[in-house]
């Protein structure tokens, strides 16, 4: 039942946004124009394309995030039963994390953590 409520809630929250947008569509004016629909660049004519190749620095951080977030997904179940698995569990998790931290240190040394 707890999860059923969540499921209904997902549908309703989307309906809430949709309802608002439909209401706005009904009452708001719609007068599009060439100038109005051009991207806002402080009044200047936009130069060049927007969807370009982007700085690789962002992807380095995304990769690091992926590593540590997947690691966090493994840590959640461990954190719940820390008492049951005891010291052995802590050492095992410690080894797991140390491997990842070695990776972080490598990235640090390589300068991946420097912005641009």
């Amino acid at each position: 039942m707890e999860y059923f409520f969540i499921l209904v809630f997902i549908a309703l929250s989307a309906a809430f946004v949709a309802g608002g947008l439909i209401a706005s569509r009904l009452v708001a004016p719609r007068r599009p124009g060439d100038v109005k629909n051009s991207p806002y660049e402080c009044g200047e004519q936009p130069i060049g394309r927007t969807w370009i190749q982007f700085n690789v620095g962002y992807y380095l951080f995304a990769l690091l995030f992926l590593v540590f977030d997947v690691e966090a997904a493994f840590l959640y179940p461990w954190a719940v039963i820390v008492r049951e698995v005891g010291l052995v569990g802590l050492i095992e998790v410690g080894i797991f994390i140390l491997v990842l931290i070695a990776g972080l240190l490598y990235a640090w040394k390589k300068g991946a953590l420097e912005w641009l």
Binding site: L21, R25, V27, A28, P32, K36, S38, T50
Partner: peptide, 28 residues
């Protein structure tokens, strides 16, 4: 609510509409 909903001419209209759904639903 009564303001015009301006979508840039070259925007990806589907994703432009989907973004507020994700932003508000996920927080709610």
């Amino acid at each position: 609510l009564f303001k015009e909903d301006i979508v840039p001419a070259r925007a990806d209209k589907t994703l432009h509409l989907l973004a507020p759904f994700l932003a508000l639903s996920s927080t709610a």
